[in-house]
Simulated assay, not measured.
Amino acid sequence: MQDTIGIDISKDTFDIHRLSDRRHERFGNDKAGLAALRRWIGKAPVRVVYEATGRYHRDLEAVLGAAAHSLVKVNPTRARRFAQATSQGAKTDRVDAAMLARMGAVLDLDAKPVRSETMHEIRELHVARLALNKDRTACRNRLEAARNRVVLAQLRARLRQVDSQLAQIDTELARLIAEDPALARRQAILLSIPGIGAVTAIAMIVEMPELGTMDPKEAASLAGLAPITRESGKWKGRSKIGGGRRGVRNALYMPALVAIRHNLHFADMYRKLVEAGKPAKLAIAAIMRKLVILANALIRDDRKWTETAP
């Protein structure tokens, strides 16, 4: 890369900082602003560093990705910690843009593939499905305590509506994946793994698009399932898991329980851990880690899981 550019994204504007000449500009977060931003950056490929901001960075990715720039999307928490580590206490749009440019250069951040439009739609549907599931759980809980006939009727109507909307989302997800051969193959591989169903497969596709490109330790760490050692001098604390992609961990908990109950390989692994004195939750986390590592290996090798060659 010839240069690094930091972009602070808000609902209405983009604040830009170019590291080479420390120049700052502001453009509107709209079609005209994106066109002006593309002209300002120029044709030479540059590293563009920006924070994940939901729908507000989606058009930016499409425009700059099409112009062959290297896009680096960073976690806002990680960016804030970098600012704190460099004693940057101020926080404005202009300061944040400069901090992101410096972060990309100092850490030599690598570009990541931009999500396709299909993946954007699948992710949006997946997030909507998670919200509907929360609504359904809340309605069921309220239904158990409700006594008034009007309230009961409304809650039952809401449950029927949620079930209908979930069915619509599942149908649309199935259509989108079926229309993309690469995604359809990835889903088929994931569904072959014991315990992983359609909902979990979608969650893994959305939350860990990197599956198939990492080594086992990287896959476990990205999912937040790699044990974190805690030692200092003579003190040794318990290792624990954390960080990573919480959505993947949440999605894998029930599949791990199903795999333990219905698959001999995972059941035997779980039993040995418990017999060795490991807590049940730790043993379940180990099964979850095994599922992620297995999914990564199978997608990498483009093959389905089999009983004889897991």
Rank of each mutant, 00 (worst) to 15 (best):
T4V: 11
A276Q: 06
W235K: 07
P194M: 02
M1W: 06
D301R: 02
L252P: 06
L166Y: 05
R147I: 05
E144H: 15
T171A: 13
A131Y: 12
S192T: 02
I284Q: 00
R261T: 09
G243A: 03
T171I: 11
H57Q: 14
A35G: 08
R142Y: 03
V63W: 09
V74C: 00
R78D: 13
R289V: 04
A68Q: 15
L190K: 03
W235L: 09
A220E: 07
E218A: 11
I177Q: 02
A178V: 09
L125M: 08
Q168L: 08
A167L: 10
P45M: 02
A131E: 12
A220G: 08
E51V: 00
V49H: 03
G233C: 02
T200Q: 04
E117C: 05
I193S: 00
A98G: 08
G65F: 06
A67P: 07
K31P: 13
Q84D: 13
I293N: 08
D8G: 00
W305K: 01
V127M: 14
R261C: 09
H126D: 12
L282M: 13
L130H: 14
H265D: 07
E144M: 11
H69F: 04
S10V: 07
A85N: 11
K11R: 05
R23Y: 10
A285Y: 09
I41S: 02
R58S: 15
Q168G: 10
R140G: 14
R245Y: 02
L252G: 02
A198L: 10
R47P: 01
A286L: 05
S116R: 05
G212D: 00
A286M: 10
R303W: 04
V46D: 04
K43D: 15
G42C: 00
Y253W: 08
S116T: 13
Q2M: 14
A101F: 06
K304V: 14
V106C: 08
A98S: 07
R47M: 04
K281Y: 03
A67C: 00
P209W: 05
T118K: 03
L191S: 07
L173N: 00
D108I: 00
L273N: 06
R39A: 12
L257T: 04
A44V: 12
D96A: 04
F266M: 06
A251C: 05
R115G: 11
L298Q: 05
P227S: 06
K272E: 13
T77L: 11
T229P: 09
A184E: 10
L282Y: 07
H120S: 15
